[in-house]
Nucleic acid binder design. Sequence first.
RNA 1: UCCCCGGUAGCUCAGUUGGCAGAGCAAGCGGCUGUUAACCGCUGGGUCGUAGGUUCGAGUCCUACCCGGGGAGCCA
Length: 485
Amino acid sequence: MRALPGRGRLARSWPRRYLGAREVAMRERVREILAREQAGGEVEVRGWLRTARHAKGRSFLEVSDGSCFAGLQAVVEPEIANFEAVRGLRNGCAVVVAGELVASPGGEQRFELQATRVEIVGEVGDDYALQKKRHSFEFLREIAHLRPRTNTIGAVLRVRNAASRAIHDFFQERGFLYLHSPVITASDAEGAGELFRVTTLDPGDPPRDASGAVDHGEDFFGRQAFLTVSGQLEAEIAALALTDVYTFGPTFRAENSHTSRHLAEFWMVEPEMAFCELDGDVEVAEAFLKAVIGAVLEACPDDMAFFEKRIAPGVIETLEHVVETPFERLTYSEAVEILQRSGRDFEFPVEWGVDLQSEHERYLAEEHIGRPVVVTDYPAAIKAFYMYLNDDERTVRAMDVLVPKVGEIIGGSQREHRLDVLTRRIQAAGLDLAEYWWYLDLRRHGSVPHAGFGLGFERLVQFVTGVANIREAIPFPRVPGYADF
RNA sequence: UCCCCGGUAGCUCAGUUGGCAGAGCAAGCGGCUGUUAACCGCUGGGUCGUAGGUUCGAGUCCUACCCGGGGAGCCA
């Protein structure tokens, strides 16, 4: 971090409720205080009480500012001017505490703050919902405005942040350009799921054409519009000019999916690389997952230790394994053979031509291989029209990365860049060639082999943190029937 | 959308064969203590998801609906 002049010094008039830009940039967080080499010196922390323990002779306040998993314990003695008011503090109160950083005689923390001043900035009411006990995740979702103050969600949000940063770092270091693909789209680009309609028409009295149908020509965009289900097609446009690009933004699916792995609004990462075929795609995907997971392990050790202890025992070993060992590679045909020879009694029998079920993916990644598996070359009939058709005419250059517990975390492919084949595939899929005129036009002018993949960001966060439900991997989950906060 | 499980105090849950609605935590009050989700005592706190039905009597049995969870499908 930058060394700014005067950093860590107390503001002249105290307490200062409002910090200037310079002071905000300079303020020392609990994370940095706890990382100090040794005790000593004046510090000031601003945050919310995780707990307040009032003993007869003194009070113990654990102040968290969200910068790290642990809080800083402040010890308040009766000599403090507003000691009686401090006695009334409890879990959730907002405070500013200043004092000397000293070695802690208590066994559970290295340092503590011997308070010289305590300002009570915000108290809590008797009905404050967060208690110093375990709450169910279901209940916490109903109080999403307080949820980030909990151990689990606070840790998830820090991991989410670290993973976001690692994603940008990975691509930026390799010369990828960050492309902002549109959120509003006019066509159901790849048929990937149900779309949310975007309209400004009066739902109770829309304009109608001569036949009585809703006249979308009168709508805001002069035609039907939707929220994007993927930035891939736009990423292909950019890749065929800028070589390597990636998108990282919100994506929307209006499917009525009620599972622990689906959200109606989620974030997706989609790199797209020109002059790249399936092998390169797989290599980038593997390096990408390893880099991001490795970066989180390094950036958030305390948060990860919490997940290991309380949420998903074994998660750290699983992640380290992912970072250290090469991914297994199988073709779809090989995977089918392995599954058929497994002797397993699957609910859905395996045969060449049908898509792999969750139980099959989990068997491959968790039991048969025991580490991430990349399955390639799926039957053309079960994959999207834009995937490159192999010479056998029955498989496409698709790849799925399967990880233990979560299943498919990355799906990608080499794209069909041959005009004649793509035209044929669009028609075979029953799609309207006219809708894809620009996508086809790209194949007429300077078309090159290119490939990319998509990663569901919340599924990555879910995999890394071990939270059972994807709704805990995003600060404000949107699912069928629920969009509060 | 389909299958299974659940909904009882602010929270987490128990509630027997249909027979007076309970505990822990939280809250309020008091006590104790360099404390660690502190501890001890007392007090207050209920439309048993909603609407019907069976019954002398329903938290408990039946029906429908709502909400939550798990699984499947769809997918990232």
